[in-house]
């Protein structure tokens, strides 16, 4: 589904990612872990096409196509989804209007007619229940005045609506209390299918108690320095990231 080969990414001329290699297949859940500043969020941003980040070399193939040549919106329409670390507040744009516009753009891209009002209402209702998003929030402006937990729930809610093929969740657990994290993880688990995949980017192991990954990768100083099964997450939790320093040098 996703093949990243020797990806180098710079911001303002400073190289952040120094040759990433990663392959994700359908049905898999990958966790990318690493200390602050290791390049985790840069990887997520580069994959969704943030202009600030300059791809200096390497390739990313998504479903057989060159991902790096696509616009951000086309990546989304082809099933790529980013759960933002810091979801943006958009005053005046209601979640309802936002999601309706997004769904219809996806449908247009697939040559489908716009969603009917009743289907849309049903979809909103079902997905709200799935992620435990409060009904009153759905009628409000996108993320405006939301708590940290509500913002993250809203990300998973959008993911549930758009049903992505590949979801990248960037620090979705940060700022969440244990109940909110369980709800969010529950939502992600319910959305897991044989034909989709998830990349979970996280600093801490705790989310991985609830979403069990198939693979864990350690990103350190712009490189994946270790890849293994889910047990690696526990090892990191125990030992912290300091030991990587010796190992990578």
């Amino acid at each position: 589904m996703l093949i990243i080969k020797d990806l180098h990414v710079s911001i303002d001329g400073k190289e952040i990612l120094k040759g990433i290699n990663l392959t994700v297949k359908a049905g898999e859940v990958h966790a990318v872990m690493g200390p602050n500043g290791s390049g985790k969020s840069t990887l997520a941003a580069a994959l969704v096409g943030r202009e600030l980040f300059e791809i200096t070399s390497g390739s990313v193939t998504y479903q057989g196509e060159n991902l790096l040549e696509m616009s951000t919106e086309d990546r989304a329409r082809k099933g790529l989804f980013l759960g933002f670390q810091y979801p943006v507040e958009i005053p005046g744009v209601s979640i309802v209007n936002f999601m309706k516009t997004a769904i219809n753009e996806h449908r247009k891209f697939k040559g489908m007619d716009p969603i009917s009002a009743s289907d849309f209402l049903k979809l909103m209702r079902d997905k709200k229940d799935l992620v435990g998003l409060h009904t009153s929030l759905a009628n409000r402006s996108v993320n405006e005045g939301f708590s940290g937990g509500e913002k993250k729930k809203n990300e998973i809610f959008q993911m549930a609506i758009l049903e992505p093929t590949l979801a990248i969740l960037d620090e979705t657990d940060s700022g969440l209390d244990i109940d909110a994290m369980k709800t969010v993880a529950g939502g992600v688990n319910k959305l897991r299918r044989k034909d989709n995949a998830t990349i979970i980017i996280t600093h801490y192991q705790r989310l991985l108690d609830y979403i069990i990954p198939d693979f864990v990768h350690v990103l350190y100083k712009g490189r994946i320095v270790k890849s293994s099964g889910k047990e690696l997450a526990l090892e990191l939790e125990e030992k912290g990231y300091d030991w990587l320093n010796q190992e990578s040098e």
Binding site: R50, E73, F84
Partner: peptide, 13 residues
């Protein structure tokens, strides 16, 4: 930031 957020959900520029 808001522009990017909207585009990342598939909404054209």
């Amino acid at each position: 930031e808001a522009m990017f957020y909207l585009r990342s959900r598939g909404i054209g520029e």
